[in-house]
Simulated scan of single mutants.
Amino acid sequence: MTKQKPTILVVNDDGITAPGIKVLLEEMQQIGKVIVVAPDSPQSGMGHAITIGKPLRIDPVTIYPEVEMYKCSGTPVDCVKLAVNKIFKGRKPDLCVSGINHGLNNSINVLYSGTMSAAVEGAIESIPSIGFSYDDHTFDANFDHCRPYVREIARQVLKNGIQAGTLLNVNFPQGQLKGAKICRQADAKWAEEFDERLDPYNRPYYWLTGKFVLNDRGEDTDVWALSHGFVSIVPVQFDMTAHHAIPQLNAWSFKL
């Protein structure tokens, strides 16, 4: 009996026409049956936002030959929710992959990322999930050196599975790759600034700017791996409980 190919949901946050999603779906076609559900416009930085105040639309599109594709009017997380409930009709895909994002989603960026939030939603739905990101924001970014890793990491997840409640955050540096490293998320943050300007009516408006501040010199982090030419693979969980803090809080005496 011929083994049935796995079904793979492909999503992103850069929009259904972004070059990164084309690379991802092409690599997933080497592994299984691909269904793409992606935003109809860029949704970067949306985090885990969902649409609740207006209707959602999901429409089939023909962009690449022999690929089942749908554009969604909502967020990356909306795409996963609609895919599971309407496209797959409650039948879970074997794998959910998100990206390839134009720009890194390492360290604290994972919290803001629409790419990673789509993968997180896949994991919440008990689907083995991976988010892929590349350190190049340009539209014509060359993803060729990422391709073998994308394919192999996806194959390993399908073969071995991922522990319930977790997913993988995979980031690629530019240049020649030295290999892949399993990492922890680096302790870093964005020190934001807001560039204030005036509109033609002399009213202020603001552009978000800032710089990435690294507070972590460990050599086991995603930031270190990427800066030294390695692909970083960070296991991520959506249980945000600070378990280590529970004993301290239990020692408090609440005088109520």
Rank of each mutant, 00 (worst) to 15 (best):
K3D: 13
L9R: 08
T17A: 01
T17P: 00
G20F: 00
G20N: 02
I21W: 01
L25C: 05
Q29D: 02
G32V: 04
I35P: 01
V37S: 06
G47W: 01
I50W: 03
P55D: 10
P65R: 08
E68P: 10
M69P: 01
T75M: 11
D78L: 02
D78N: 09
A83L: 07
V84W: 03
N85W: 02
K86E: 15
K86M: 08
G90S: 07
K92V: 00
K92C: 03
K92S: 08
P93A: 13
L104K: 08
I108N: 05
V110R: 09
V110Y: 07
L111W: 14
S117M: 05
A119P: 03
A119W: 00
E121Y: 00
A123P: 06
S129R: 07
I130S: 11
S133D: 11
Y134T: 09
D136C: 05
D140V: 01
D140M: 07
H145S: 14
R147I: 05
R147N: 07
P148C: 07
V150L: 10
R155G: 00
V157H: 05
L158P: 12
I162S: 01
A164T: 11
T166G: 06
T166Q: 15
L167V: 02
V170P: 00
F172Q: 06
G175E: 08
L177A: 13
L177W: 07
G179L: 09
K181Q: 12
Q185H: 05
Q185Y: 05
A186G: 04
D187K: 13
A188W: 05
W190L: 15
F194A: 09
D195P: 02
R197I: 03
Y205D: 09
Y206I: 03
V213M: 13
V213R: 09
L214W: 04
N215L: 14
R217T: 00
T221W: 05
P235L: 10
P235Y: 10
D239E: 13
A242C: 13
A242E: 14
H243A: 14
I246M: 07
W252M: 11
S253I: 15
